[in-house]
Every structure is written in C-alpha cells, then in structure tokens.
Design a binder for these strands. Structure first.
Lengths: 345, 345
DNA sequence: GTGAAAGCGCTAACAG
DNA sequence: CTGTTAGCGCTTTCAC
C-alpha cells in the first residue's frame, strides 16, 4: 500500500536523459536553463510526484530559508495580527516560518530559542516573555551572526539589534490624559513587570500626564500584576473595596481591564460614572464588554509586515541591520464608553 | 566577528582521536558505546559548542521527528489549550512541532498541507477549516502512509483515519434542553457551515431536544453564518429587530454569542429575561460579558494530549492507527447567568 | 566497543 | 545552455 520510494532529481534526470544538475537548475528557476527543458522537467516532476528534499537542499546550501518567531502568547488579537503580517511578507519572499510561544515564561523562551537555534533558522523574530531578564539565550545567534529582531516587548539595553515598537510612553500619556480630561482625579495604573519596556514606558507616560496636569503621583496607585486571569479578578475585587474609590483606571491590557470592569460591576460600581477605564491593545473583548472599552490600538499586521520585511531585507543583504536601531510605529487611543463621562456633542 | 565555521562530529572525533561513527553513537545514546567515551564526547561537544545538524540527520534516517499541526485559528481558548496538550506530549516524546493556521480558508489549508508534506512531517494533526469540502490535499499523506489524525473539526466520511471529537450532538441537545427548561419556547440556533461535523451535529442535537420537548422545528430558526465578527454584529442586530422576538439563542461559539448579546443589549433587549443565550467553547470572553455566558466547555488540553499520544504511539508502532476510528471526549454545559431565568436555589 | 566506508538528495564550482 | 564532480554532516551496515 505504502508508496515508499521517494522520487529524486535523479529519477527525473534519467527519464529525460539529462543531468541531475540541470534538473536542479530547472526546478530552481535558474536563468541558465532553456525554457523547453525547464518545461519538460516540471512536467516530469509533476508526473512522478516529485517533492524536493528540503534537508538535502538545506544541508547543501548553508541556510534554511526559515524564520523563527517567538511570541509570549499566540492567543491575543495583537499577536495574531502581527503573525499574519509576518507570514504574508515571509511567504511572498519564499521564507518558511517556525512559530513558538513562550507562554510568558522565561524558561520556556530559553527552550524555544534553543530549538530555533538547532533548527538553524536564518533569522529570529522575538517578543519577550513577561519575566525574561537575562538575554543570554540569544547569544548563540549573535555569535553566529544570525540576525535577531525584537518587536513590542523588547530589551533596549541590548546593543546592535533592531527593535520595532510603538511609543508606549506617548500611548500611556494619552490614555492618562484622556482620563484626566474626563474629570478623573485619582487614577490607578495597573500594569505588568516593570522591567519590561512596554510596561515601564506606559508608566512613564502615566506619570508625565499626571505631572502635566498638576496631579500628584503616588507609588501606591501603581499596581504591578502578573496580568493573568486570576489576578485580574482579584485585583478588580480589591479595587472595588478601596476607600475612597479611585475614579479612573488605566490598565495595561484589555483582557485584564475587561475582567476588572466585570468585578467592579459585580460590586455595583458604575463604569464609567464611578470609575472610568482605559485598556490597551484593542482586543476583541474590548468591543464586547459593557460598556465598550476605551483602548489603545496598534497596528499589529503592519508591525508584523515591517518586522519581517526588515529581517528579510537584511538577510538578502539589502540593509545592514545594525544601522537601524529602533523603529517606532504609530498607535492611537480609541475612545469608547468605558471612559466617557461627559459625552461630547 | 561572525563565528562562521560549524562544529561537526568530525571535529569532536579528531579532538578525541576516535571515529566520527563513535561520536555519532555517543551523541545518540547508542548502547554499544562505553560510558567513559560517551562522557568524553559529551564534554568535548559542549566545549566546542557543537549543535547537531538536523538536516544531515534527517537526510540520513528517513524521518524527521516532526509532527505537523493544522488548525483553523490559533486565536481561541480551545485551540490554544489543544496545542498546549499536543506540545506537552510531543516534547516529552522528543518530537518537534510545526504549527500552522488555515484561517478558516480551505485554500490556505491546502497550502499548509502541501508545506507540511514538503517538510516531511512524520505525522499530521488536523482540525479542518470552515469551508473545506474536498479532502484531496491529504491524499499525498495517505499515499505515502503518513498518518493523519483529525480532531474536533473532522470529516467522518473519510475512511481509515482516526478522529478525536466531542459528542457535539449531545452537547447541542443539552444546551437546547437547558434553554427549554428555562422556559424558552422559540429558540434560534446560530451556527456555521453545516457540512462541518461540529455544526451539523450540534444542529441535530438542537432538533432532537426540540422534538423531545414537543416544540416545533422551523428551518428559519437556524441561521447559518460565517461566524466572523462582522456577521456577528449584523446577525445580532437582525435578531433584535425580529417580531416576535425569539426567547432563546443557542450559538455555536462564544465570541459570536458575546457579540450578539452586545448587539441585543444595545437595542434594549434584556438577557436573559427577554432572550436567554447559550454559547459554545468556554472562551475567556464568556466570563467577561455581562451577564456571563452559559456555554459548553470541552477539555482542550486533554484532547491535545490524547491526539498527540495517539499519533506518536502509532508512529512508534505501538498501536495500529486504522483500528481505532473515533474517540469521543467528554464535554459539559456550564450554566451562567446569560440563560438563567428562574434562578435555582 | 570501535572503525571504515558508503550514501541520504541536493547544489555549486568548474569546464565545456 | 548543460554535464561532471565533489561534497554538505550524519548514520549505519559490516567488519574487526
């Protein structure tokens, strides 16, 4: 039953009475092969059910035409969009993708990086896990000159690698400013691990905005959380029990914000009247909760396309990666009901 | 700067004055190699920064130790859980994973299958796209004797391949029965492409339940949708404008249900008082909407583990795959406020 | 327990 | 435009 023998270029060559080299060239669209022979080669290949052996090919040429991608979690609108963007560009350029998720664990990220290294990806795209501190698991790549490019969750201390991010400080500023303009005077900021750029920068923006509007900043108004579902419920309930109640919440992701909102509402607290809430990411959930969540949108797909294009350009020698350090993509605040206290118009 | 030369088993062999064959054996824990030499080999390999060349290895042995996974969408709680389960088992058994998403497009699924085939995965795990009809893109696998195993979205007409599913008919029955028991008499069922088992079976369950409770079934009460976000809003608004209003909604996924709920509420319709709603999947969103959504939970992680274990057992020759046709996993209805009309207790 | 040797399938000089 | 040749790095008989 099993059709066990593999068809090779030798089989094609034999059938056409030409050399395997020519077959190889024909299959790879090498210019120095006549249209006629190429045509024939393709036909026979088709007829014989030939499939090229990537391993032999990769073994021979010393690269894999494969890009590695490590993300914290597949399961978010933002990450999905980025991936879609990366895949589009990679596909068009003939690159394959290996995708893995660290599940927000530094340990798993290390394992993933090792796998990627062993898989000999030509380049690596990374968004760091929640608690990744040490970046030495990328050293093998640096040493071998394999380009690594970071997006969103980056470590800017790292020299000589490219980062593609949004202006988290600005986004944090705008979110906070918006809350202030809605009349909030005591705004809590709920965020993640502050060693991570995205959270540290949003916090900076939050602080700046407070300062700009002459509001005091209290350390105790910043809640650092693991940002998982369980903490979200706990934090939400905790806030509901505060006296006096804060009147604004700037939360570093939509899911967390949505759950907080739920927890607050369970305790009879009104959103936005008692507490106005702003989230981050523009996940689907932000549109489904009641009231819809004001949030920061950033263009995942574009970001992914940009990241991939950059990496591929570099791999193809077009652009020296080390010269373009940090690329900042536009983000914007989307105002919905969860923060709107004095409806405009 | 670039450390360009790769370390091979020859380098290790030379350093230890032994043959590459022995090094290979040592690295692969071949029994016929003394503890001492193995120890030394490992040390030198470490010191030299050796990484085995998968391509050479794969080229030589005729398999890849890699499993392919094709899912409709990465972006759902259920799929993430399944993947986690698959990964756990695969990892433990020393298998690598290539994961790709069809994004609910049959066309993309074909492309993915081809890529998997070219990547020479040792086995394939598939959950079908929304609109996949023709399954011929898996023929190359069947022909070559590469095992393909389906889960959740399956095509049971397919002979001689294993399916791992939940009892969708039963789940559909229970969901509908629950709504009836809550006093619903006119229940709409919103679902996906009815050629797909999951949707067809849930519909059957819905019909059975109606019949069992002496309620009439109307074709027009079944709304077939693409189940994307846009349709969800449209459908929700459409339902809101119905006269008379239905009093129950059984929706084939949580996201869609959540959006419908939102759309209904926008029109001033109360959930569950005017319309009770049951979703499907137990996605995070089901817990965050107001009121929380009654839904059907099924154990993704377990399902993933089971699927992977099954496939790997077969690859290792333990179990003949063709003999175990269909495995059914337990699912359960989780009752929350969106459907509770006469609060128990 | 270890070594020699052949070859997995492909590509890239080089030569014509 | 096409053929010859020589490996890429590894595993696996078959010897010893």
């Amino acid at each position: 039953m099993k059709d066990t023998r593999e068809v090779t270029i030798y089989d094609i060559a034999r059938q056409l009475h030409i050399s395997p080299a020519t077959v190889s060239r024909g299959l790879n669209n090498h210019p120095a092969v006549s249209k006629k022979t190429r045509q024939k080669i393709l036909e026979v290949a088709q007829a014989l059910g030939y499939r090229s052996n990537t391993f032999a090919s990769n073994l021979r040429r010393q690269h894999t035409n494969t890009l590695g991608v490590i993300v914290p979690k597949l399961n978010s609108h933002f990450v999905s969009s980025v991936l879609a963007g990366i895949e589009k560009v990679a596909n068009e350029a003939g690159y394959n993708l290996i995708i893995s998720q660290s599940l927000e664990s530094a340990q798993k990220e290390v394992a993933n990086a090792n796998t990627m290294f062993k898989s000999r990806v030509d380049g690596l795209i990374v968004s760091l896990a929640f608690d990744t501190q040490d970046l030495s698991h990328f050293n093998p790549f640096f040493k071998k000159g394999i380009p690594v490019i970071f997006f969103d969750r980056v470590e800017q201390s790292l020299p000589s690698s490219t980062h593609i991010i949004i202006d988290n400080e600005k986004a944090g500023y705008q979110a906070t400013e918006h809350l202030i303009q809605q009349g909030c005077r005591h705004i809590l900021h709920i965020t993640g691990n502050l060693t991570r750029n995205v959270y540290a920068d949003r916090l900076k923006g939050y602080q700046e905005a407070l300062k700009a509007y002459g509001l005091p900043f209290h350390e105790t108004d910043v809640i650092v959380s693991m940002l998982d579902e369980k903490s979200a419920w706990e934090t939400g309930r905790q806030i509901a029990n505060m006296h006096p109640l804060p009147d604004g919440l700037f939360v570093a992701n939509d899911t967390f914000a949505a759950i907080c909102m739920q927890a607050l509402k369970e305790k009879g607290i009104r959103v936005p009247d008692d507490i106005a809430i702003v989230g981050f990411n523009d996940d689907l959930v932000s549109r489904v909760v009641e009231p819809p969540l004001t949030t920061v949108h950033y263009p995942g797909q574009e970001m992914g396309e940009l990241v991939a294009r950059h990496l591929i350009n570099h791999l193809q020698g077009t652009v020296p990666l080390t010269h373009t350090h940090t690329i900042i993509i536009h983000s914007e605040l989307i105002v919905r009901q969860s923060s709107l206290r004095n409806p405009q118009r």
